[in-house]
Amino acid sequence: MSKTLKKYFPIFVLPTLLAFTISFLIPFIMGIGLSFTEFRTVIDARWVGLSNYVRAFTADTKFIEALWFTARFAVVSVVLINLLAFPLALLLTRGIRGTNLFRTAFFMPNLIGGIVLGYIWQLIINGILIALFGVDITFSAKYGFWGLVVVLNWQMIGYMMIIYIAGIQNIPKELNEAAAIDGASRSQTIFKITIPMMMPSITICTFLTLTNSFKLFDQNLALTNGAPGDKTQMLALDIYKTFYGRVGWEGVGQAKAVVFFLLVAIIAFVQLRLTRTKEVES
């Protein structure tokens, strides 16, 4: 079949490939090229070598601060989201009545867009902070940090829970039964059978939470917009502001974007390598 099918490349692949080339490949390659130039409108690009990269790190400390903030945020979010989603998945695979309704409810926030999520939580967090301390979220970077953690948790716990549930349901029943016959306790079963058998789901979930928290933008823009004084600004928001907030900095913005891309790519690659080696054959 694949021989006849081979001739159908123009019909099956070309439309997607064309759109992909125009809206991803060309902009991506242009983006790398432009990071070595100074430009306002692309056509007026002038080669400046590595100076954009140097400026990104040395002209001010914003990029490095954003990097540090993002790294801390990503670590905290990945740990929290997975530590909360996994037990939830365990609870929801015990055949308790209403399980489907619970799943539906926990997954729901995931479908709400990032900007809207940010505003919803801004109202709530400000309400709590004003009642307790008489200040709002822009008062301290600490509030902004934990605010963002809460927002991303709220958005992603349900999603990860669904993936974990599917993973748990894929574990052959015989394994659990054999463990029960051998007299394994509940926690032994979880640590010796469930978790090792779930490594593929854990790989996927850490990958998704890690890249999503690193690339976070909408929620950051809506919840704090960097306040106070760009101290809660993550990498994506910093790049956005460098592009559209400062004339003459477009090249620096593009250079920051390239660094950002490399970081995300390296992290994704290393993380996949690390967790893949822990997976067991089922």
């Binding site: 809206s23 991803f24 060309i26 902009p27 991506f28 242009m30 983006g31 432009l34 692309v42 890249t211 690193f214 690339k215 933008f217 990498l235 994506a236 790049i239 956005y240 592009f243 477009e250 913005g253 593009q254 974007a257 390239v258 950002f260 891309f261 995300v264 790519a265 994704a268």
Partner: peptide, 10 residues
């Protein structure tokens, strides 16, 4: 895995 900001402007 490419972040949107990488291609946003171009």
């Amino acid at each position: 895995i490419v972040p949107f900001q990488m291609v946003m402007f171009t």
